[in-house]
Structure formats: C-alpha cells, structure tokens
C-alpha cells in the first residue's frame, strides 16, 4: 500500500550549486539510478522534510541526461532553506508534473520565444531542447527582458545563443546601469521589430502575470493566431495531483492541465491572467 502513495518523494542528490544573481541559485540534481524524464515546461515538487514542499519548474532540457537543473529564487520558507544547501545534500523530488510545451506540435514551425524576468527559467528548457534538435524547427527568435542587468540569468548561455547563426537573439532591460550597452525598455518594445510568418509561427511566452497581457496584445497585432500563442502560468501547486485546489483556475487544475496553455484556452477561462 505504502509504495503507491502519490505523496512519496524520490531522493534527489545535489551535484552542484551555483549562485546566479543575488537572489537566484541554480541547483544541479540527480535522481540516483534514473533520469527525471521530463518534458520542457514541466515542474517538480521539491521537498525538504520538516520545512515543506514547493513547485519549481525544471530549467534544463531533457536532452541533458543524468541530472536536471532548478533555478530557485529565494522568496519563501522552502526556497530560503534550499539556498542554504550545498553539493552532496539531498532534497525530495516528486514529479515531473503537468503538461509541458507541446514539442511535437511545435516541430516544423517557426518559434518566437518571449521571456520576462524569471520566465527564462522554464523557457530555457525548451530553448535548449530546440537548439539541441535544431533541424526539426524553423526560424527561431528569442526575446528576453528583465528589470535590470544585474537580474539577468544564464549570461554565458545567452552569449552562446547570441552567437549562433541559426537563432535570432535580442534582449532588453527596463532600467540600465552604466555598464549596459544593449536595449533599454519593456520587452513589448522588441516585438514589432521581429519579422515573422504569422501562419507558421508559434509564440512561447513566459513571464510575470503583468507581462502577459501586453505581450499578447503585441503578438495578436502581428496576426499570430490565439492557438499558436503558448504561455505558462504560475500558481502554487501544493499537491501536484489535481486535488488540493490551490492552483485551480476556472475549471482547470494548473498542475495537471497546465502549467502550459494556449492563449485560446486561457482566454476562455476567467481569471487566468
């Protein structure tokens, strides 16, 4: 009976911890003897027994084998405790849960990635998956925005994306500092400059709630159909099993039916964004 409990955790071994900004750390975690086998956009429930459990999106691509990566911003009780851990420590893992990005549907199409703030964390999983299987996808544009240069994550990887000839990368900050040489302004300001074939373009947007409304307006201006705009919603999935109710939006459980939805679907459920 016990082994069947959906609340059972698997042991995750922390292989490395990397400070990314003053607020975020990246944890590389391995499940002894198995792969997480997640799809880009899925999340896991991370536990520290005695402290609690929280949903965190997987940031690494499934093409990375043997371990997976979580990027954790220190905001609450559990994330605060996670930040105190070091390589060799254990965490509890349940999942992966939810519906990730529909990779099969995206294949063969052009992709426009729009990431705001921490939105790059789950989106990175898909971007690296696409880059790892580059020939299966059409034109790829990546737009990234964050509040200031200090909050920018994955510097080295971003530089790598920027240098690729088969990816168009552009980023902006809301507020520059003296060392910043790039764009200054909201992420929405980058969208009009993208040339795209709206019929064969899927836009994948992840960011804070406030961003969705404005970015989606710009995407619709570009004639991208509603069903080709994908977004990932943030909710507090407490159980991950479609039961506890915390992540419910309208008649959908974000943890089971999401967190990735088409804008077409999100528009139909009230109170989603």
């Amino acid at each position: 009976m016990n082994t069947k409990s959906p609340y059972q955790i698997k042991i995750g071994k922390i292989l490395s911890v990397k400070q990314m900004t003053s607020m975020e750390k990246m944890f590389e975690i391995a499940l002894p003897g198995e792969d997480l086998s997640h799809a880009p956009g899925q999340f896991v429930e991370v536990s520290l027994l005695g402290i609690g459990e929280a949903p965190l999106s997987v940031s690494s691509s499934p093409t990375k084998q043997g371990s997976f990566e979580l990027v954790v911003r220190k905001v609450g009780k559990l994330t605060g405790a996670l930040h105190k851990l070091k390589a060799g420590d254990e965490v509890g893992i349940r999942g992966p849960f939810g519906q990730g990005f529909p990779v099969r549907i995206l294949e063969g199409n052009d992709l426009l990635f729009v990431a705001g703030g921490l939105g790059i964390v789950p989106l990175r999983s898909l971007i690296n998956f696409v880059i790892g299987n580059r020939k299966n996808f059409g034109k790829v544009d990546i737009l990234l925005g964050c509040r200031n240069p200090k909050e920018m994550l994955f510097h080295e990887e971003l530089a790598g994306w920027k240098e690729r000839l088969d990816v168009n990368f552009n980023c902006t900050v809301d507020k520059a500092d003296p060392d910043w040489k790039g764009n200054v302004g909201l992420i929405t300001s980058l969208i009009p400059g993208v040339t795209l074939d709206s019929e064969r373009t899927f836009a994948v947007v992840v960011g804070p709630p406030i961003m969705y409304k404005f970015v989606i307006m710009k995407l619709l201006d570009k004639n991208i159909p509603e069903r080709q705009i994908l977004i990932s919603l943030e909710r507090h999935m407490k159980c991950g099993l479609g039961k506890c109710g915390h992540c419910q939006i309208g008649n959908t459980y974000c943890c089971q039916d999401g967190p990735v939805f088409t804008y077409e679907k999100v528009k139909a459920i009230g109170g989603a964004i």
């Binding site: 009976m1 016990n2 082994t3 409990s5 609340y7 059972q8 955790i9 042991i11 995750g12 536990s47 520290l48 027994l49 005695g50 254990e90 965490v91 509890g92």
Partner: peptide, 16 residues
C-alpha cells in the same frame, strides 16, 4: 500523509 526522519537524508514513509 507521511512520517519522516532526516537523520540520514530525506527519508519519508508514506502513511495510509
């Protein structure tokens, strides 16, 4: 839902 003992790591016993 479970009892736990973290003396040796993240060990949890589901309770039904």
């Amino acid at each position: 839902l479970a009892t736990y003992d973290t003396t040796q790591g993240q060990n949890m016993d589901p309770v039904v």
